[in-house]
């Protein structure tokens, strides 16, 4: 055990933790984005709400979600530890520093970008995760005729709601769920929140512009043939596509509802 302890307390080991947690969060982003795309389906939020239920109740996903929370915390804590360590490594600062001449802006500002993201995550979870888990969202019932495929949506009072249900009765599929969709639609009426989301997604873009590639570099997975692919994914998928996808949601809601 001493060996592993010393490994993870070395500067390289700490970076390894950053890279591992960071990459894990990256994979989560894909899943999260794909799921959240349900928001764009015109079904009064049915698919979205079913997806939210699935994500919060399917046991393996639950385990992963705890890992995820842990990762966020570890990533942030180690970032802080390393930042403090690095500041100590240069007790006297330069009077003139031309960092822009030799390193990208995002690589030099990972801490600030990360802090923005942390604030965002807290806000985000307070708005949705916390309210969802504490029954602070409305409830909804969907009735879909299996013959016509038409769906009717009806808000139901909390007293009528027991738990998520999905069953077929008389050729009609009935789904009762927590209406996170409604909560989302409601929340994104707030222009400030929309702005925060867009800014945060921009920060995420920059964070991953450096971070995704950087994790591979830290692992030492550097190969002349594969590194260009990693860089490509880092830039176009993680720094552009995913943040754009996420940012599109609040904008979509704000401008269409």
């Amino acid at each position: 055990m001493g060996n592993f302890k010393s490994t993870f307390s070395s500067t390289l080991g700490k970076k390894l933790i950053m890279a591992l947690t960071g990459l894990f969060l990256c994979t989560f982003l894909i899943v999260h984005l794909v799921g959240n795309l349900q928001i764009f389906s015109h079904d009064g939020g049915k698919a979205f709400n079913e997806y939210s239920y699935f994500m919060t109740h399917f046991p393996p996903i639950k385990i992963i979600s705890y890992l995820l929370y842990a990762s966020i915390i570890i990533h942030a804590v180690y970032a802080l530890i390393l930042t403090l360590h690095n500041q100590k490594a240069r007790p006297v600062k330069y009077a003139v520093y031309e960092g822009g001449k030799n390193a990208s802006w995002s690589s030099r500002n990972m801490g600030i970008l990360g802090t923005v993201l942390l604030i965002f995550i807290v806000t985000h979870m307070a708005n949705f995760w916390f309210k969802y888990h504490n029954d602070m969202v409305p409830f909804v019932e969907y009735r879909t005729s299996l013959q016509t495929g038409e769906t009717t949506v009806k808000e139901i009072p909390a007293s009528e709601f027991r738990d998520f249900v999905k069953y077929v009765d008389n050729g009609v599929e009935i789904v009762r769920a927590k209406d996170l969709y409604q909560q989302v639609s409601y929340a994104f009426q707030n222009v400030w929140l929309v702005i925060l989301y867009v800014v945060a997604m921009a920060a995420m873009g920059f964070h991953l512009y450096h971070g995704f590639w950087s994790a591979f570099q830290t692992f030492g997975w550097d190969h002349k043939k594969y590194m260009p692919i990693v860089s490509f994914l880092g830039v176009w998928v993680f720094a552009v596509l995913i943040p754009l996808g996420f940012a599109a949601m609040p904008l979509y809601v704000y401008f269409t509802k």
């Binding site: 500067t11 390289l12 700490k14 970076k15 390393l82 360590h85 690095n86 100590k88 490594a89 240069r90 960092g99 001449k101 030799n102 390193a103 990208s104 690589s107 030099r108 990972m110 450096h210 590639w213 950087s214 570099q217 830290t218």
Partner: peptide, 15 residues
């Protein structure tokens, strides 16, 4: 020796 840790900024390589 108390050197800092790498954040892969690449400044070293450039300079």
């Amino acid at each position: 020796e108390g050197f800092g840790s790498c954040t892969n900024t690449g400044a070293c390589e450039v300079e």
